[in-house]
Amino acid sequence: MASATQNTFAPPVMEARRWLQGVEFSPEQPLINVSQAAPVDPPPEAMRRAMADITLNEPQAHLYGPVMGLPALREEVANQWSAAYGAKIDPASVAITSGCNQAFAATISAIASAGDEVLLPTPWYFNHKMWLDMANVTAVPLATSDALLPDPETARALITERTRAISLVTPNNPAGVEYPAELVLAFFKLAQEHGIKLIVDETYRDFHSQDGAPHALFQQDGWQNTLVHLYSFSKAFRLTGHRVGAIITAPDLLSEAEKFLDTVTICPNQIGQYGALWGLQNLRDWLGGERLEILSRRAAIESNMHLLTNSGWTLKGCGAYFAYMQHPFEMASDALAQVLVQEAGILALPGTMFMPENHPEAARHLRIAFANVDANGITELFTRLAALRFSLAPSSAAK
């Protein structure tokens, strides 16, 4: 009998890094790493100084804290989310977690048992699939349209007595697509109708192209009974190494999640929580500038696509940190991604890492994570891709 971890695949980002072993990159063609959606720069200096002060002068920061997070941080999240979404969110509806991945794991542990089901739109975020595998919860693939948007009526047909949730990521990882507010609301109503949860992972919310609230879910009557909102401070404030995320949902569900959180980490990282609190209170303008930079990189992706379209490439989705691209080559994306390291000095993740095994669409796509590549780097990336001379796939396979 397989163990829990043997039920799933190896971590994709770690697998991709192994492709770099033994490869030397020339000064003329240095590595362009578009494999991971995590900022590599540290937090802004002012935040680091504030965190250093906490480290030196706040003894409590070195002890166990509350399992569901610092009360001041929970209150700040409740207040700022209430203002941002035009709703009333109570601090008791907020839990702080050790990153957004743990927020998802805690949520699944609180709502599902072995043999239950959760609907995941494809392409899916691989860590969500991995956790469901390890929890022996079936990830039910929810196909998306050519625009990579899931359809509520397609989802309705997949709901069974074992379904416990529908899980959405918007802006999407891996596709970058921003789900329209009316679509997210339709999924909320579908979940509410069936008495299941709607998990909405908004890790990349701060880089949405739309000004204002991206949806009206927190304004719905009884939202706590259906919605589980997930968030990450890692992307907003470059706190990736400090592991700080959040869940917003009904307090009674958080009480169940607390059992998981207490067992796994006891409490979130204290220094990271103080940093997140300081960031929320002091870095609004700075974060606005980060958003504009990411939006400019998105524009650079779109403006450079003309270099590839004549060769048969298609931009399927673009937003937040990601571009999801259909390639024109005969080889499958998992092979292509490894060849790109050798031939073009590009490290990207193949569509096979985001789709069910042997899914035909998986072979045709690559994910480009551009959080750490500026506009000049994006132009160089597209120039290298345009120079590739591999055998093209039959026209029917490229559609």
Rank of each mutant, 00 (worst) to 15 (best):
N358G: 09
P59H: 13
G212L: 01
A16D: 03
A300V: 10
A393R: 12
A332F: 03
R205K: 02
A246G: 10
K259S: 13
P214D: 02
L366P: 15
Y321V: 06
H306N: 05
V140D: 15
V67M: 00
K235I: 00
A155E: 04
E302N: 01
P121L: 13
N282I: 12
A84N: 03
R162M: 13
P44H: 08
E258S: 07
S232Y: 00
Y321L: 12
D201Y: 01
L287C: 02
M355E: 12
N136A: 15
M353G: 06
A246Y: 05
D211R: 07
D334M: 12
A103C: 00
M305A: 06
P394N: 01
H128C: 08
K88I: 12
R297H: 12
A4G: 09
M134S: 14
H229T: 00
R74S: 13
R298N: 07
P360W: 02
H306Q: 10
I108E: 02
I196L: 02
F390S: 01
A320G: 08
P214L: 00
G22N: 12
P150R: 09
M14K: 10
P44N: 10
M305L: 13
S167L: 12
Q80H: 07
A143D: 11
A110V: 09
S167I: 07
L253A: 08
G275C: 00
R205I: 13
L73D: 04
A393S: 14
L292D: 06
Q60N: 10
I301F: 02
M14N: 13
F390T: 08
I301Y: 04
V77L: 14
T154D: 09
S98V: 00
S167F: 15
T8P: 07
N127Y: 12
S232H: 00
T314S: 09
Q36R: 05
W131V: 03
V264I: 07
T263D: 13
L336G: 09
D151Q: 12
P152G: 06
A344L: 09
L392Q: 13
A320W: 11
S82E: 11
E76K: 12
I111T: 03
Y231D: 12
G377A: 04
G65K: 02
H194Q: 08
A332D: 10
Q29V: 15
N376H: 01
A191H: 06
L120V: 12
N225R: 05
P12N: 09
S333H: 11
W313S: 09
N7T: 05
P171L: 05
E380F: 02
M331A: 14
G222D: 06
V373Y: 04
L307S: 11
G319I: 05
S35Q: 02
M14F: 08
S3E: 10
N172S: 15
E361S: 14
A186M: 05
E330A: 07
G319L: 07
P171A: 08
N127S: 14
E161R: 11
W124I: 15
P91D: 01
A257N: 08
P150C: 02
R18I: 10
T160Y: 09
Y274R: 00
E256F: 03
E302M: 11
H194W: 05
S311I: 04
F354K: 11
